[in-house]
Amino acid sequence: MESFNLRLFAWLNAPSHASHLTLSLAYALAIYAIYLVPLLMILGWLHRDPARQRLALKALLGCVFALSVNEVIALLWDHPRPFVIPVGHTYLDHAANSSFPSDHMTVISTLAITLLLSREWRPLGYLFAGLGLGIAWSRVYLGVHFPLDMLGAIVVSALVATLLAITERFYMPSLHGLSRGLYRRLFAPLIERGWLAH
């Protein structure tokens, strides 16, 4: 499996003289695309529709749980990044911590799978799944992850998102109520001015 991982990395990783255009696209996907995740969650929460708020909460909870699983995996198995071994070409500065699973891919995959599990929001889920593939490519291309780091992230995300979807009726009513109360208390001045939905 590790030899396959290295071969696939060598195929996807940027060459020594990568084009400026391709590197710019990879940087945009690897660094900035992930900010669409919290933006979508915030927009979902600020909408007056309780169903959208619950979906945003479920996605947020999924990301927190999935990233926590990643931390446990990293403690149990400290897999080196490509530039630590070293193999390939690296075009992005990154801490030399464990590469498996990818946190970026975990976040985008958790959101995408949460949306895919919702019939109403499935088309948006496909859009974010496509964005996730772009992020996966970019971080391998720039030399900070291996392909299997991305696969591991998808597995973690799928397990967490599915578990939260199955058990939603047990935790969501209390979580939604608590979150609504906290939101109204923290942002009361803005809500009173009409700047935020109540």
Rank of each mutant, 00 (worst) to 15 (best):
H176L: 12
V160N: 10
L175F: 07
A158W: 12
S157T: 09
A112C: 03
D103E: 14
L76Q: 08
I85N: 05
L163I: 14
D78E: 15
A96K: 14
N97W: 13
M150A: 11
T114H: 08
V64R: 00
H176D: 11
H145S: 05
S102M: 04
A158V: 10
S98I: 13
E71H: 09
R119C: 12
I113K: 02
G143W: 08
T162I: 05
Y171C: 00
L142N: 00
L175R: 01
T162G: 02
H104S: 08
L117E: 07
S68W: 06
S98R: 07
S138R: 04
Q53F: 03
R81K: 11
S98N: 04
L131T: 05
P173E: 09
L115N: 03
Q53E: 07
L133I: 13
L76W: 11
G130A: 12
R119I: 14
A74E: 12
A74G: 14
H89P: 01
I108V: 15
L124R: 10
G177E: 04
Y91D: 03
V107H: 04
S174E: 07
L127F: 05
A112R: 04
A56Y: 10
H79D: 08
R169G: 06
E168Y: 15
A66W: 02
W77Y: 15
Y171R: 01
L164A: 01
L142W: 01
D49Q: 15
M172G: 01
S102K: 01
L60E: 14
D78V: 14
L151Q: 03
Y126W: 15
V69H: 03
L148V: 06
L111F: 11
M150C: 08
I154E: 03
P101A: 11
D49I: 12
L148D: 02
